[in-house]
Simulated assay, not measured.
Amino acid sequence: MTSTFESPALASAIPASDGGRLYSLDALRGLTVAAMVLVNNPGDWSHIYAPLRHAAWHGWTFTDTIFPAFLFIAGVSMVISTHRSLASHRSPTAVLLALWRRGLIIVAIGLAINLVPAFDLATLRWPGVLQRIGVCIIIAAPLVLWSRWRGLVGWTLALMVTYSVLMLWVPVAGPDGAVSQGSLEAGRDTGAFVDRRLMSGHLWAQAKTWDPEGLLSTLPAAATLLLGALAGRFLLTRRMDGGRTLLLAAAGLLAVGLGVLLDRFFMPINKSLWTPSYAVFMSGYSATALAACYWFADGSGNERLRHHVRTLLLPFVMFGVNALAIFAMSGLIGRLIGTLKVTSDAGQSVTIKTWMFGELSRLPLSPVNASLLYAGLFVACMFVVAWLLWRKQVILKV
């Protein structure tokens, strides 16, 4: 059995940083994870700047760009890592099993974090960000390994078309029992119906009747990863130069435009539903960001400029080489400090987070700025962890 990566066209290596890693990709991944940690850990959920919130339903904010960017980058990384594994004479089947194992471990980590603090399987939320990442890896792995670029395009379209047909043309009952077809209202869509049928009692506690990381919307989420894989194939096909980098950026901008058209005439951009317009739109942004980051950090012929850019991006590279570990750790710490209690100066029993934010609130800051400061300090603490791992040359992998 052979893999499409074994063709001579992919024999030349891409420009990479020390250790065989693509500096720009690590930096972009790290920037994404740092943003994830920032938006997930405000001091007070009631006081947040609008760009650091998800859109209420349709539409998007800065926060809505983060998760799809991570999945897009995961697709690029999957192509590069599988290429290197196959180049070292590992069989495609062994590589596939390793990817599936990784996906399952990521799902297990996500479930374990969701058990904190209750440790109650009866109320455990089954979906989640890490769970979605793991399932997308499992879905995409065989497609990336055994599909040429036309096949990847076909699978991407198939996932989005299947999702769209189920969402728009299958009549389903809402939480109140009323049947509707093509509804994109919260809790009344086909994905929410599927989630209630299969995971009732194990959905997002704030909604209960639907989940932003539900099962059906994992299909276009996996398509987002495949769009990243297409970008990865483009990077690997031949050595990148200014023209090819510009072509990647142009493709990204075209995808952004296509996403706008899909939003206007087909299905609205919606993160919670992960609509095709959202997947295409955000993948376009991610591809454009990757092209820019690649050019300045890896592809620029100006050695002095490249050195300065890499110096500026180094903190994000530190995040990026241990991205999943940092994200999982931040989620666990966030849950623990939001649960464990201490005694305040007033003699009250409050959570560690409440106590820490209370101390920050004494500063001459508005509530929204105090909340942002808390989030920034949380990111700084995670950076210390990333820096220590970087200094010890430790890369935590699953």
Score class of each variant (00 low, 15 high):
residue 5 F to V: 03
residue 19 G to D: 07
residue 20 G to F: 10
residue 21 R to E: 12
residue 38 L to C: 07
residue 40 N to I: 10
residue 41 N to Q: 14
residue 51 P to Q: 08
residue 51 P to D: 09
residue 58 H to N: 15
residue 62 F to H: 06
residue 79 V to R: 02
residue 86 L to Q: 05
residue 113 I to D: 01
residue 117 P to K: 06
residue 119 F to I: 08
residue 124 L to Y: 01
residue 135 V to Q: 08
residue 138 I to E: 05
residue 138 I to S: 06
residue 143 L to F: 13
residue 145 L to R: 01
residue 148 R to I: 01
residue 150 R to H: 15
residue 151 G to V: 08
residue 152 L to D: 01
residue 153 V to N: 03
residue 157 L to P: 02
residue 162 T to E: 02
residue 172 V to R: 07
residue 184 L to R: 04
residue 193 F to T: 00
residue 196 R to N: 08
residue 198 L to F: 13
residue 199 M to A: 13
residue 206 Q to N: 13
residue 207 A to Y: 15
residue 209 T to W: 07
residue 214 G to C: 10
residue 214 G to I: 10
residue 219 L to K: 05
residue 224 T to E: 11
residue 224 T to C: 15
residue 234 F to E: 12
residue 235 L to M: 15
residue 239 R to P: 04
residue 248 L to P: 01
residue 253 L to N: 04
residue 255 A to S: 14
residue 259 G to L: 09
residue 259 G to S: 05
residue 263 D to I: 06
residue 268 P to W: 07
residue 272 S to R: 12
residue 279 A to P: 03
residue 288 T to L: 15
residue 291 A to S: 11
residue 297 A to S: 13
residue 297 A to T: 10
residue 298 D to F: 00
residue 300 S to Y: 03
residue 300 S to N: 08
residue 303 E to Q: 12
residue 309 V to S: 06
residue 319 F to C: 02
residue 323 A to G: 12
residue 323 A to F: 02
residue 328 A to V: 03
residue 344 S to T: 15
residue 347 G to F: 09
residue 350 V to H: 03
residue 355 W to K: 04
residue 359 E to Q: 15
residue 359 E to F: 00
residue 362 R to D: 08
residue 364 P to G: 08
residue 366 S to P: 01
residue 377 L to P: 07
residue 379 V to W: 06
residue 380 A to I: 05
residue 381 C to A: 15
residue 384 V to T: 12
residue 385 V to G: 03
residue 385 V to T: 05
residue 387 W to S: 09
residue 388 L to A: 12
residue 389 L to W: 02
residue 393 Q to D: 14
